[in-house]
C-alpha cells in the first residue's frame, strides 16, 4: 500500500476525527438528557426516573447474557438489593447512599452463593433453575414477616437524604432531582459495565458463549467466569434495586415477581442483546410506547396483551432486535443506491 500523502488524512487523523465525533455525540446525549425532565409533566418525570433505573436493570442483565446464560431471577436479585438497602436503613440506621452500596454487595453475594448450584446447569436447565432459586427468595420475603414484612413488604423506606449546604439545597423527593441522581449513578454504572465488556473479561465472556469447550481447553475456567458475570450483573441489578427502593419508598414480593422479569426479557429481546445499546434501546422505546401511546389511547389494561404480542412478533420477525434495524436499513439503502446507480449506467 502506498503511504498516504499530505493531502489525504492518514489513518491516525481518521481515528481522531471519529473519536471527536463520538465524544460530541456523548456530550449531545447528556445535554438532551439534562434538558429532558424540564419538558415533561410531573408524572412523566416520575416515569423518567423509573426508566433510568430500568436502563441499568436491563443493561446489567445483558452482561449476564454475554456468557450465553439467560436467567429468570434477575428481578429477584434486584429485589435483594432493594430489600437489603431498605432494611439496612430501617433497622440499622445505615445512611442511604452507603446502604445502596451494601445492598448491591448483598445482591452480588447472593449471586455468588447461587452460582454453585446454578452453574452446574446450562441453557434451559439454568433458566428453570434460576427461576426456582428466585421464587424461593421471593417466598422467603413473603413468608417471614420479620424482618421482610411479609406479603405487604416494607413501607416508609428512608428517602435519599436531602443535600443542604446553605447555598445549595436539593430535595430528592422531587422527581427532577432524583432523576439527576439516578442519571449520574446509572451513567457511572453503565460506564463500568462498558469497560468490562471492552476488556479481556468481556472477550472471555463472549468466548464462553460461543465455544465453552474450546475456551476451557486454553485455560478459561468457565465456571469462574460465568460466576463473575453473574456476580457483576447482580451487583448492578442491586444498585438498581437500591435506587428503586429509596425512590418509591416501598417494596413488596409482588414487585419482584416473574411478571416483572417478563418485562426485562421483553426489553432485552426487543432491543437485541448483541450490542451494548440494544437493550437500552428496547427499554426506552417500549417505555415510550407504553407510557405515552398506550396511556393516551386509554389502553392501560391491555398493556400485558400488547407486550405479549410485541414479544411474540419480535421473536418471530425481528429475532436480532431493534439494534439490527439500523445496519439492516443501511445495507438496504446502500444496495438501493448502488442498484439505482447501476440502473442509471445501464440507461446511459
Amino acid at each position: 500500500m502506498p503511504e498516504p500523502t499530505g493531502a489525504t488524512p492518514g489513518p491516525g487523523t481518521g481515528r481522531r476525527i471519529r473519536r471527536i465525533a463520538w465524544q460530541l455525540r456523548v456530550v449531545f446525549l447528556f445535554a438532551a438528557l439534562a434538558v429532558l425532565p424540564y419538558l415533561l409533566s410531573y408524572s412523566q418525570q416520575e416515569i423518567a426516573v423509573l426508566l433510568v433505573i430500568n436502563v441499568l436493570l436491563v443493561s446489567s442483565y445483558r452482561l449476564l447474557t454475554l456468557t450465553g446464560e439467560w436467567s429468570l431471577g434477575h428481578v429477584v436479585i434486584m429485589g435483594v438489593g432493594a430489600y437489603a438497602s431498605a432494611l439496612l436503613t430501617k433497622r440499622l440506621g445505615v445512611p442511604v447512599p452507603l446502604s445502596m452500596l451494601l445492598g448491591a454487595s448483598m445482591a452480588a453475594a447472593t449471586a455468588a452463593i447461587l452460582s454453585f448450584p446454578l452453574f452446574r446447569m446450562k441453557g434451559f436447565y439454568f433458566l428453570i433453575g434460576s427461576f426456582a432459586a428466585g421464587e424461593i427468595i421471593r417466598l422467603i420475603w413473603k413468608r417471614f414477616t420479620d424482618p421482610f414484612g411479609g406479603p405487604k413488604g416494607l413501607k416508609r423506606i428512608d428517602p435519599f437524604p436531602d443535600i443542604d449546604t446553605g447555598f445549595l439545597s436539593i430535595d430528592f423527593y422531587e422527581p427532577v432531582n432524583y432523576y439527576f441522581l439516578a442519571l449520574i449513578v446509572v451513567s457511572a454504572s453503565l460506564f463500568v459495565l462498558y469497560r468490562i465488556e471492552r476488556s479481556r473479561i468481556g472477550l472471555t465472556f463472549h468466548a464462553i458463549h460461543w465455544q465453552d469447550r474450546l475456551a476451557e481447553s486454553v485455560g478459561v475456567d468457565t465456571f469462574r467466569y460465568r460466576t463473575l458475570a453473574f456476580v457483576i450483573a447482580s451487583f448492578f441489578a442491586g444498585i438498581a434495586g437500591g435506587l428503586y427502593a429509596h425512590y418509591v419508598g416501598a417494596v413488596n414480593p409482588t414487585r419482584f415477581s416473574v411478571d416483572q422479569m417478563v418485562y426485562v426479557l421483553v426489553w432485552a429481546i426487543v432491543g437485541g442483546t448483541a450490542t451494548f445499546y440494544g437493550p437500552i434501546l428496547g427499554v426506552v422505546v417500549l417505555t415510550v410506547i407504553n407510557e405515552i401511546v398506550l396511556r393516551a389511547l386509554g389502553l392501560d389494561t391491555a398493556r400485558p396483551l400488547i407486550y405479549g404480542a410485541i414479544l411474540i412478533l419480535s421473536v418471530l420477525y425481528l429475532p436480532n432486535g431493534l439494534e439490527s434495524l439500523g445496519p439492516r436499513l443501511r445495507t438496504r439503502w446502500q444496495r438501493w443506491r448502488s442498484g439505482s446507480a447501476a440502473g442509471r449506467r445501464e440507461a446511459a
Binding site: W70, G123, F124, L127, V262, L265, V266, I269, T301, A302, R303, P304, L305, Y307, G308, A309, I310, L311, I312, V315, L316, P319
Partner: peptide
Amino acid sequence: LAGLIASIGFLLILQTLAVF
C-alpha cells in the same frame, strides 16, 4: 429458547383476555 419466550408472550395475551 425463542419458543419459550414466545410462549411467555402468549401467556400475557391469554391473561389479559381473561381479565377482559
